[in-house]
Amino acid sequence: MALFPIVGRLVGDFIPHLVAVDTDDTMDTVARKVAVHSVGRRVAAPPGVPSYDVYLGDRRLDPSVKLGELSLLPLQWLDVRIRD
């Protein structure tokens, strides 16, 4: 369990953010921590409770995988997409 900085971009927004996540966070949690800086701020929230997918490059990451299992470097760029 450790604080870990990533670069998170909610696809559709215009800038990626520095997002503090935890190595124990699942991709679902990572997605929410990234989305909070964009959805409902500059990107309209989809109707209902939104769900998200996290991408490392073109690869969609399993929602239950933990960040620590990915052995990323600090400030790795992760994309978060609103699932439709």
Partner: peptide
């Protein structure tokens, strides 16, 4: 905002501010 934008190692400006969101 509640966090910092990610920044460019050369211009020190926020990523995403050189082009458009389509090209980000």
């Amino acid at each position: 905002p509640e966090t910092l934008p990610a920044l460019c190692s050369v211009t020190q400006l926020p990523l995403g501010t050189a082009m458009s969101r389509d090209r980000l």
